[in-house]
Write a protein that binds this DNA or RNA. Sequence first.
DNA 1: CAGAATCCTTTACGATACTG
DNA 2: CAGTATCGTAAAGGATTCTG
Lengths: 125, 125
Amino acid sequence: MSHDQSFLADCRARLAFDLLANTWNSVVLWALKDGPCRPGALRGRIGGISPKVLTETLRRLECGGLVDRRAYGGSPPRVEYGLTALGRTLLAPIDAFGAWAFEHGDEVMAARERYAGEGGDPPPP
Amino acid sequence: MSHDQSFLADCRARLAFDLLANTWNSVVLWALKDGPCRPGALRGRIGGISPKVLTETLRRLECGGLVDRRAYGGSPPRVEYGLTALGRTLLAPIDAFGAWAFEHGDEVMAARERYAGEGGDPPPP
DNA sequence: CAGAATCCTTTACGATACTG
DNA sequence: CAGTATCGTAAAGGATTCTG
């Protein structure tokens, strides 16, 4: 890789981190990787996300050009969300984390238990 | 990649996302990539982080086994934080995002401006 | 200088109810 | 069913002060 120390000052770097710095952005992007999807089905794929927060998250991603929204009029309304080309470019980096979690997730959980056991009584969130 | 749809249900996956789902974890990890560092210097490398939040973040990462803390007694106290072996394994995935930001960050910012201009007046955070 | 303690503000998130 | 509106809570982040 090729970033120098000013990396953290670069606003694009901050933008990338900020994109992930919330509970749902990456999860929703990930849930869309298998193709466009209606909001209801999305909630099923994800689990534990309220309709309101899902809508907010999708708007945020749409605003950033990562997700696009297609509305087919009618009643009941039918809407589908899918990744844009730009959004798809984020899948590989996200997947790198997924792979990391499968390899090292246990170590993190073990470290936390060790920390809790060693008298690090107030284990920070 | 090799994750099936149950990926999102796997608690290790959630753990990985949660590690990034806050403003500072990834930034601090990244700032430590060039070697161990004292808190004061870390704040300089990062910029915009308060001492309190830096300490909290370091504790959190230490608890997860990603960072270790070495205290050399004395007065004034001298402390250094550095990545553990486990922490270093996270650098590659984080860097994937950094690289992504350099390639596509402009597109996201452009999309946001477009969105704001098109009457998407309330541009969500 | 490290960092704990305190106080305060903001906001992310959740639950619920309502509209088209 | 999609989406908005409203309310409430919990937590994150910031500023400040104080200590060893």
